[in-house]
Design a protein around this nucleic acid. Structure first.
Lengths: 219, 219
DNA sequence: ACATAAATTTAGACTAGTCTAAAAATATAT
DNA sequence: ATATATTTTTAGACTAGTCTAAATTTATGT
């Protein structure tokens, strides 16, 4: 069994380095809002448990076993987010902190039953893919709104940035998962875009915002 | 905010002493499977936080504020148990350990939404009353099966003992919440009872078992 | 190549929670 | 009433996880 702290380190390592990329001590410290010295201590511990490959001064990466644990935590986080939004009517910008707690509940049976109850969702409320029980993830084709050209059409399938501020900004533009977008125009000056939403109103979206929306192209 | 350990001490204090009864250090240590010295340390801490009334060597009881927290944890535990049984199809003997974890999730909004989702249940899967959001509890009239006389009739409304072994024993007898029981006979020799279940088969129930079943008398 | 900067690790201290063993207080028994 | 048993508290040590400050290693710029 792994402690809550250990699980959080493994999850952060996954978010920064994926299945096998090296991650620097400071990057991990930043991600976890802790200090580099604390990271070093934990890396030694996780290395002893064979959950990470750690060489002093050289960075760290997940072992196969560490990756499996990290993926499991991500799976739990995202399934709970679906539960919170679909069943308890939370909004998509309200669920992160609660899911951060729920992701550490220990019970394999619980999570399988939750998955079934939710009807085996493939994506969480932000469009992030939910690993299946074997750890398989179906990744987005990573096309962002900013990469579409004038007159191209697509559907919003995910967000890259999860802050409350950004999610609220999208809500106010009526942009949510499943929304159809059509590029009316790209403004050269500030790289913002004029976008027609669901064949109705046209809104202007900042470059910053367009870079953080995943789109599935149509036609 | 209170730590997980603090919440567990407060809950145990509630289970042993209710709203205001004094509890001995050793009793608390037993309940929490810890040592008396650990209890003493924690009581000093909770006393400093004004969550318990503690006088060295004299025992300890909950303050109003400590009681409110304890009741909140119990409310969360029991609501999650309802979720696990009603929505995720767990059996009543499988939910305790998971609910022990879920009861510490911090989010007032979560628990209110869960309560609504479950349709404001009054009792958990073992028949224990669920405190409402103001901390009000509707207690059972505490009649146990063992207190019924020959030819009396009642309905099973709760269990006093929550061990897996006991709950399984009841399952095997087809005894669950809502089951109708009719006392065919009381055996003087070992105080066991012959009980007709749902107007069908007659089973023999040990004294030990009859003392742990709450009954609502009929007629 | 060498000085300096940046990143990382080590050393030592702190907190929360736990433990064992000894000391102190309270209860019980004759 | 006094010895004995029981209960509780205190003292000191331990672990997990964190921190600051100093030391060390690696990277960078001229």
């Amino acid at each position: 069994m792994n402690s809550l702290a250990e699980e959080n380190y493994l999850k952060a390592l996954y978010k920064l380095g994926g299945k096998s990329n090296e991650v620097q001590t400071n990057a991990l410290a930043d991600k976890l809002s802790t200090k580099a010295s604390s990271v070093t201590d934990m890396m030694k511990k996780l290395s002893d448990k064979k959950l990470v490959n750690y060489e002093p001064y050289k960075g760290v990466s997940l072992t196969k076993e560490g990756y499996a644990i990290a993926i499991g935590v991500v799976r739990k986080h995202r399934l709970w987010e679906v539960f919170l939004v679909d069943k308890l009517a939370f909004k998509w910008d309200e669920v992160h902190e609660i899911a951060e707690q729920l992701e550490h509940i220990q019970s394999a049976e619980l999570i399988e039953k939750l998955d079934e109850f939710l009807d085996y969702p493939k994506f969480d409320p932000h469009g992030d893919p939910i690993p299946d029980k074997n750890g398989k993830i179906y990744q987005h084709l990573e096309v962002t709104l900013s990469q579409l050209e004038k007159s191209e059409k697509g559907i919003v399938v995910g967000v890259k940035e999860h802050s409350k501020a950004y999610l609220n900004y999208l809500d106010n533009l009526n942009l949510m998962l499943g929304t159809e977008v059509f590029i009316e125009d790209k403004v050269e000056f500030d790289s913002s875009m004029k976008v027609k939403i669901n064949n109705a109103e046209v809104v202007t979206i900042s470059n910053q915002a367009t870079k953080n929306l995943y789109i599935k192209k149509l036609n």
